[in-house]
Design a protein around this nucleic acid. Sequence first.
DNA 1: TTGTACGCGTTATCAC
DNA 2: GTGATAACGCGTACAA
Lengths: 333, 333
Amino acid sequence: MKITDIAKLAKTSTATVSRVLNNDPRVKEETRQRVLDIIKKTGYKRNTLGRNLRKMRSGNILAILPTILNPIYARIIDGVERQANKSGYGVIIAVSHRKKENERKQLEMLQTKEVDGAITFVSSLDEQFLGEMAREYPLVLCAGFTHCENVSYTCIDNEKAVYDGMKYLLSLGHKRIACINHKFSKVYEYQRKMGYERALKEARLPIRPEYMITNCTDFKDGYNYTKKLMELPEPPTAIFAFSDKIAAGCIKCLNEIGVKVGSEVDVMGFDNIELCEMITPTLTTINQPLEEMGMVAFDMLYEKIKNIKTTRKAVIMDHKLIIRQSTRPMKNA
Amino acid sequence: MKITDIAKLAKTSTATVSRVLNNDPRVKEETRQRVLDIIKKTGYKRNTLGRNLRKMRSGNILAILPTILNPIYARIIDGVERQANKSGYGVIIAVSHRKKENERKQLEMLQTKEVDGAITFVSSLDEQFLGEMAREYPLVLCAGFTHCENVSYTCIDNEKAVYDGMKYLLSLGHKRIACINHKFSKVYEYQRKMGYERALKEARLPIRPEYMITNCTDFKDGYNYTKKLMELPEPPTAIFAFSDKIAAGCIKCLNEIGVKVGSEVDVMGFDNIELCEMITPTLTTINQPLEEMGMVAFDMLYEKIKNIKTTRKAVIMDHKLIIRQSTRPMKNA
DNA sequence: TTGTACGCGTTATCAC
DNA sequence: GTGATAACGCGTACAA
């Protein structure tokens, strides 16, 4: 059943049927009804494949995730999907597993017109390549920072977020604060490090390399590094982990070696995922507005799809300190 | 740049170019090279829109999720995506938010040829409607059970899974075991209830309605219901929650009211999500092979896409008891 | 081994 | 308001 069949049955032309389907106002009410009747009677559904070819668009966008198992990305996608849905776009997810070749191949879907635009996250591709793609195709970076012209992006101010977290820990009376950073050499990791160091400098406290853990990916790493930190001659009195899962690893470790979290040693996370409320003690953290970032990312992409000439945009979202049980004023402060 | 341009530049026909693009062996090596050279030189990429119309397929499948925020679905999608990727299919995600109208509209994408097949999860649609769609289009149910002809499905044996969990708890010496079931009136919830009751009957223990909580959705509910359970004149000595998040709520509550989990009261979850290892004590649970279920679901769908006439299939996956710290032999057993 | 010619289903243009 | 017709880019049956 195709548009020509409907036209014949309604004794009109394909053009008119198409107009009805697209709510073109210049169709006589009587004709419209006749066509709609036939459509209803036959159960005709328009074939999107033909439509897409004619309009030279796919109606889908691509979201390239490093992994979907991290709830952070799930939440961002939730925002993207919600917003895309409103504009009638479908969201195709592609998992890069942080492999350059995968991401490259996935971005090719822009060139083959399989998707009308793409949202990428912490990218493993060089900025040059990204920039070249963005010159020709709608491309947006979400939850990350880029120097690239043409690539719009949205993220929080990571330097300030960590700085604010540190200020809070310092205000509790901590003098020995460790931080645990991620593994992948991304701009935001550098920015977080800077925030950590700035806060210490302003407080006239030393920056101790043994307190600055890097190459930490997940829960298990958080657990292991915490053990090492606590074995130092002068262990820290607070640990600021730059992800909640890592912080959960810290807490797990401290619980096991009998150190009271939230009195003897404070722990702070980053992201504010569901987990924070589930562990004991509950986890103080920095909130990232992930759903909103996803929504903003889609909106920026949509704008680019509608008019590729729009200039690049940066939307910096607000972070927020969420205080829970894992941090408390020091007794001897 | 389209296929005709390449044909002209390579001094051949569009048919031959198309053959080269599709690795048709009956092209002279010399011609093939000439075409490939031009393709490389011009950076030509084939337009998928034209191709899709011609082949009357979209190259995408749809995954209709109740929500993407539950890590369970994220893990299933991981399996689906992985497998789809191998076959060159894209995965479009659509979130139904458990709304009938949403799900219905999303399934329409099959009729409009926007997707070549669909995987649905715990569906809120009546079986009749699902069955009708499945007669015409490739449709698969993942992590759920259905009576529908035409709808292939994959899931674990939920009755036996709960039964096995109960047998384990009984073997530890428990005589008063509560269970906390979900909210949505799905077949699998009924099956789990049956498993719970069968185990009690076989052990000649009474089935106490006050120990059978229902309408429990998430962490917070688990927390609240546990409080109520422990306020009973005869509180249970073990709680079997039919989701890990709910179980985490139980543990949280017990921790707070000073009841030792894993000695005074045992707690058991369901699903084996990451969380189980992160909380204290770690959570005994029933593992569902979620990634594998996603992979199987895609494979079944793929088979249907290739040949819609294939008969309906059911793949029952193995569950597994994972023992951790939240359960232990009772002292006085 | 290659080329010609047509059709996939829709929308846009133009003429009426 | 409406209808005829030409694209959109590709794949393939058929002929050579």
